[in-house]
Design a binder for these strands. Structure first.
Length: 475
DNA sequence: CGCTAGTACTCAC
DNA sequence: GTACTAGCG
């Protein structure tokens, strides 16, 4: 999915270059897309559960190709799914399952390739090869897209190589598409060059580029439909672009689009129906605002401070539910194991089985991100840790807990680091030894935590986009 | 003219 | 994830 049609829409502002343009520099690689392409060579084996690692050949070949041009790759792996992306993920996995069913019945090549899914186990095997060959990598805590943009913006990489148009929505300074494995030629999109983008008749697409650059461009991507939110039915890139060109703000553009596409249908509607439409308009604006936040503040790994940080500096303080939509934080020790060491399955936060150690013999780890929602509920793990096993950061929690008896949610407590603020707010802490720690909360705080758990728990998240679309189509 | 939905493609022999 | 296109509003 990504942003449908975006690359062709802004093609005029891109250029054909050779990868050797980046000789002597590092580039961030979307590892999943290379694994996905590699999996084409062994789609049948993967679908039938047969042992193979032929999917590693393509990524390793591409790495060798880059190095032959003196370009140093940094492979960026996907992390856990963001709650707001489940609508898209569910659609994709349903399509893959259907293909797998057909593949088993009819044994057609196309169905086998359609059923391809890049698993954490496949990522793990590539990670092991990367360590052997001394190739740099980062595992994104959540979206690899956001992680690549962070690496480029902070000068760790000169550009990002991907096939996903979302990097432009994330405002990646330099993105490389369609890198040819044979020739090394590719298409370079420099974000600032978009100020020169023209339509087919030659007129400028983004007049007053500064306002597009600082927000309207991403707003256009959101309004036209992105992975986190479907668009108003009938609205694509052109319509979103036109609305924002005229109205110059997300809010006014949404109002105008709702007027045009919906309000007309309410002329004959009863007052109650009209009131519901107004309600829908404000809810749509709220959902779009959530998407703006993801594109701006998605949680990424900062290799310098060795911590999870927002893609850009958080200007305003968000409450805990807003913060979680950007990707829940986790204990610094876990974040390092996941993102820097690459030894955790991002989805389950379990250690990858080593060659010597089978899964069964390994200690079970707590998944803080999905656990913390439940951990504040009385029915789950109310036992406190042994004092001897409490880390320094935890002792802060304990001190706060005893001083104030209970921590209300959304308090925004002052803490040594952002991760701890988050965990204070949730009233739970993941110790170094992977046991959950429970801080008693007031009844009100428990209720609030319970409600947010049901709204945003990673295991069974809601499909915000689904509900929104259904109501739209019901009109 | 623009959006939607359907098809074909990514590897590698 | 992409690109292309016939068909429809």
């Amino acid at each position: 999915m990504g942003i449908d049609g975006l690359l062709t829409f802004v093609r005029s502002a891109s250029s054909e270059v050779h990868i050797s343009k980046f000789a002597g520099q590092r580039v961030a690689i979307d590892a999943s897309s290379w694994l996905h392409r590699g999996a084409f060579s062994c789609a049948r084996e993967l679908a039938l559960g047969q042992e193979t690692d032929r999917y590693l050949r393509f990524p390793l070949r591409m790495i060798a190709m880059l190095r032959s041009h003196c370009v140093e790759p940094v492979l960026v792996f996907d992390g856990a799914k963001l709650p707001m992306k489940v609508r898209t993920d569910r659609l994709r996995s349903a399509a893959r399952s259907a293909a797998l069913q057909r593949a088993h019945r009819e044994q057609r090549d196309k169905d086998f390739t359609d059923s391809i899914t890049v698993t954490p186990a496949m990522a793990d095997r590539l990670l092991r090869k990367l360590r052997e060959s001394d190739t740099a990598f980062v595992v994104a805590p959540y979206e690899a897209d956001a992680q690549m943009v962070f690496l480029v913006e902070h000068g760790h990489c000169a550009a990002a190589i991907t096939e996903d148009s979302d990097l432009l929505a994330f405002r990646c300074p330099r993105t490389i598409y369609k890198l040819s494995p044979e020739t090394g030629y590719c298409r370079l999109h420099s974000f600032d060059d978009l100020c020169h983008a023209t339509d087919s008749s030659g007129s400028l697409l983004f007049d007053d580029w500064q306002s597009w650059k600082t927000g309207l461009f991403t707003d256009m991507c959101i309004l036209s439909g992105c992975d986190y939110l479907p668009s108003i039915p009938g609205v694509g890139l052109k319509t979103a672009h036109a609305a924002l060109s005229t109205h110059r703000s997300m809010q006014r553009a949404i109002s105008a689009l709702h007027d045009k596409f919906i309000w007309s249908k309410a002329q004959s509607a009863d007052p109650a129906g009209r009131a519901e439409l107004l309600q829908l308009t404000s809810e749509h604006l709220e959902l779009c605002t959530m998407c703006q936040q993801i594109f701006k503040y998605a949680t990424v790994w900062d290799p310098v401070s060795a911590a999870l940080v927002p893609l850009h500096q958080l200007g305003t303080s968000l409450d805990i539910r807003d913060r979680d939509r950007l990707g829940p934080l986790m204990a610094p020790s876990d974040a390092k194991l996941l993102c820097e060491d690459g030894v955790l399955d991002p989805t389950s936060l379990q250690l990858y089985p080593t060659v010597e150690q089978s899964t069964a013999s390994m200690p079970k780890r707590e998944d803080v991100r999905s656990r913390f929602f439940d951990a504040v509920c009385p029915r789950v793990n109310t036992a406190a840790c042994e004092p001897s096993s409490i880390s320094i950061v935890q002792q802060n929690v304990v001190r706060r807990e005893t001083a104030e008896s209970a921590l209300p949610l959304n308090e925004g407590a002052v803490a040594p680091c952002e991760t701890d603020t988050f965990l204070y707010s949730a009233g739970v802490r993941s110790p170094m030894h992977f046991k959950a720690f429970h801080v008693p909360l007031s009844d009100e705080a428990k209720t609030a935590a319970f409600e947010s758990a049901h709204l945003f728990a990673i295991d069974s998240p809601p499909c915000l986009g689904d509900a929104f679309l259904q109501r739209f189509r019901g009109i």
